[in-house]
Structures are given as C-alpha cells and as structure tokens.
C-alpha cells in the first residue's frame, strides 16, 4: 500500500491529468466491450461469456489489416466488420439453438467457444505476444495539458468511444430500428406476431455487440500487446462494469466503465498490488447495496 503516492498525485495537476486520461482510455475501451455485453443481455437475455473473444479477434484482425495495407482506417474497419460478421454467424449457427435452454447450457456453449477461439488464434497468429505498433499518423509529440502528458491517440480513442456511445444511445432512443429492438427486448413474441423477423433482430444485435467489442480490440491494438486469451481479463472487467452499471443499461455501462477505469488508474498508485481487489470490492459493495446495479431496473 502506498497512500503517499496517491495523495501526492492527487495534489499535483500534471499527475492528475495523466492518471485521469489513462483511466479514461481504460474506461472507454471497457465501455465499448461492456455496452455490447449489456445490449446482448438486454435484448437476447443471454450472458455472452465469449464476448472477450470478439475483443481479441478485433485486435488481431486490425493488426493483420494494418500490416497488409498500412492504413489505420482500414485496420479499424476490418476489426469492426470482421467481428460483426463473426458475431452474426456465431449467433445464428450456435447461440440461437440454446435460447430456450437452461442458462447453464448457454454459458457452456459460450465457454466452449472461449476455448475454441483462443486456440484458433493460437493456430493462426501463434502463441507469442504480438504488437501492432503505433500508426505513423499518430507518431507525433504528445500534448501537454496542465503539465500532464497526453498522447494524441488517447484523445482519438476517447472521441471514438464517446461517439459510439452517442450514436448507440440516440439510435436506440430515436430511430425506428431502435424502437423495434427495444420492443423485441420487451416482448419478442408480440414483435414477431407483428410481422417482424425477430431472428434477424437477434442476429443483428449480436453482430452489433460483437462489432463494438471488435472495435474496442482494434482501437486497443496499437497500445496493448496482443496474445491469445487477451479477451479474458477484459471480459471479466466488462462483466464487473455491466453488473455495477446495471445489466441492460447503456448509461450504466458508461458510468460503470469510467468508474472502473478511474479506480484502476488511481488504484494502481495507492494500492499497486490490490488494484484488482479494489474493483471486486467495489462490485461487492454495489451489488449488496443495489443488487440491480446503479442504473438497472429494480429487481425484487
């Protein structure tokens, strides 16, 4: 424990800025993964345990696309589109078979794919650590805000994630498709009776969730190292985020992700070894005091 370091940082604006931005990028990446998770749970009522694999695939797709084309935009596109297609296939071929079944069966199918996907990545890209490297467009001197160092790429990352949150929130609240999705979450039988293809909605939502996780992976590829199984810690953390924020709530995912991001970045100063423990402690406290999460609908 190192409370002095934490207090010292809180007193200095430069350190405060640096830690806050690093907390924000952790939070934003987590948000993109968690919001897909929460969306899939909200509409399909499935806890997608294999969601971390989409994050991982997003990162690997982006890396390969970048190595082939040298284009950062194309890499992001490949990461997002590739995982969207993967999500669609995964949902239509496998997950749709276990909707009626036990929750445990659904978890089991996802668990099977966690194992399979990790090994597929190991086969295709090899078991060693990989790195995509920072695209040349972002190899510029960092910005200084109040004396704190902020790489420009971080700003892009935060911007993209915020934009995704806005588009998603507005899309669900304002558009016709958004309305249909919300209706399907509420009463799929009735939606289907009205002549809307719910299978397509389910597949679409799963693809969207997968795409967001893939985008997060692609965005993370330049700043994180890539390894099979990298999706796992992200998955656990985004579970914490969704549980804290409330399953099914987009705003909850955003707030939860930012809280976890900040806990991680500041916690690593004050409690370097117990950072993870802090997150779980926070989750326990939230669950015990508000079982449905900060923004979830009240459950009995």
């Amino acid at each position: 424990m190192d409370i002095d370091a934490l207090a010292g940082c809180l007193a200095s604006p430069a350190c405060l800025v640096t830690q806050t931005t690093s907390g924000l990028i952790i939070g934003m990446l987590l948000f993109l993964v968690a919001v897909g998770l929460t969306l899939i749970f909200g509409v399909l009522k499935v806890v997608n345990f294999s969601h971390g694999a989409f994050y991982m695939f997003g990162a690997y797709f982006a890396m390969t696309a970048y190595q082939l084309s040298e284009s950062f935009a194309l890499a992001m596109l490949c990461g997002a589109a590739g995982t969207a297609i993967l999500g669609l296939i995964f949902e239509r071929v496998f997950m749709s078979r276990v909707y009626g079944a036990d929750v445990l069966m659904q978890l089991l199918v996802c668990y099977a794919f966690v194992l399979i996907f990790d090994d597929v990545v190991r086969m295709v890209w090899g078991p060693e650590f990989k790195s995509m490297g920072m695209p040349s467009a972002f190899q510029v001197p960092p910005l200084f805000i109040a004396g704190g160092v902020v790489p420009p790429y971080y700003l892009l990352l935060i911007g993209v994630a915020l934009a995704a949150a806005m588009v998603l929130g507005l899309g669900l609240a304002r558009t016709r498709i958004g309305k249909v999705i919300r209706a399907a979450a509420h009463n799929p039988g009735m939606v289907s009776a009205l002549g809307i293809n719910t299978g397509l909605i389910y597949g679409g939502v799963f693809a969207l969730g997968g795409m967001l996780a893939g985008l997060a992976g692609a965005l993370a590829a330049p700043v994180r190292s890539l390894t099979p199984g990298m999706g796992f810690s992200v998955l656990i953390e985004s579970f914490i985020v969704t549980v804290i924020g409330g399953m099914g709530s987009i705003l909850g995912a955003l707030v939860g992700a930012l809280l976890i991001g900040l806990i991680r970045s500041f916690g690593s100063l004050g409690f370097p070894l117990f950072t993870e423990g802090l997150m779980y402690l926070f989750m326990v406290i939230v669950l015990v005091s508000r079982p449905s999460g900060l923004f979830g609908k009240e459950v009995a």
Partner: peptide, 28 residues
Amino acid sequence: AICVRLKEIYFAFVTLAFQMLIHSTILT
C-alpha cells in the same frame, strides 16, 4: 449471509466477485 439474498444471475456475479476478491488477496 451477504450473497444468498440475491437471485439468479446476481447471485452468480456476487459470488464470482468474492472469489476474485479472495484470489486478489492471496496474490497480494
């Protein structure tokens, strides 16, 4: 005493959180 009040998926998550808390404590 803390966990069993919660139902279904929330029970699953809070037990998972306690598990990870104990794991982190062991590591720390």
